[in-house]
């Protein structure tokens, strides 16, 4: 079952990053709730962002939040391979809307 495997792997990676980040923040004495808001996604693209606990926490959240998009991509690939063009187009449309949601200016 590919969907199950995908869900399990993506979630495992996300949870591992979250746990590592959480330990870093807790050990560093920065575990004061609610803490700062999540870093912008663009900021996470810099390698140094992943050296901080906060960066790892955000990366874990972003990877988990992207899981539904990965599932749609999986469906799209399946439809393309079986030449179900209408279904593939619909999957592409859903992906486009999901991507649209990421283009929102920060308050």
């Amino acid at each position: 079952m590919v969907t199950r495997w995908l869900s399990l792997s993506v979630t495992s990676v996300a949870l591992a990053l979250m746990m590592k980040g959480f330990l870093d923040v807790a050990v560093g004495g920065r575990l004061i709730l609610p803490g700062p808001p999540a870093m912008p996604i663009r900021g996470l693209l810099h390698p140094e962002a992943l050296q901080s606990g906060e960066g790892l926490l955000c990366m874990g959240i972003v990877i988990l939040a992207a899981l539904p998009a990965f599932r749609v991509v999986l469906a799209l690939v399946t439809y393309l391979r079986t030449r179900a063009w209408v279904d593939a187009l619909i999957a592409l449309g859903v992906l486009a809307v999901l991507l649209l949601g990421t283009y929102v200016p920060r308050r």
Binding site: G35, P68, L98, G101, T102, V104, R106
Partner: peptide, 27 residues
């Protein structure tokens, strides 16, 4: 999951996701 995936990035980009609250809850 897909519906939540469409909204979550809007909240994230707007600064409404707080990792120290979200991470323990989500775990």
């Amino acid at each position: 999951g897909i519906t939540a995936g469409a909204s979550v990035f809007v909240y994230y980009a707007r600064g409404d996701v707080y990792p120290l609250v979200t991470v323990p809850t989500v775990m």
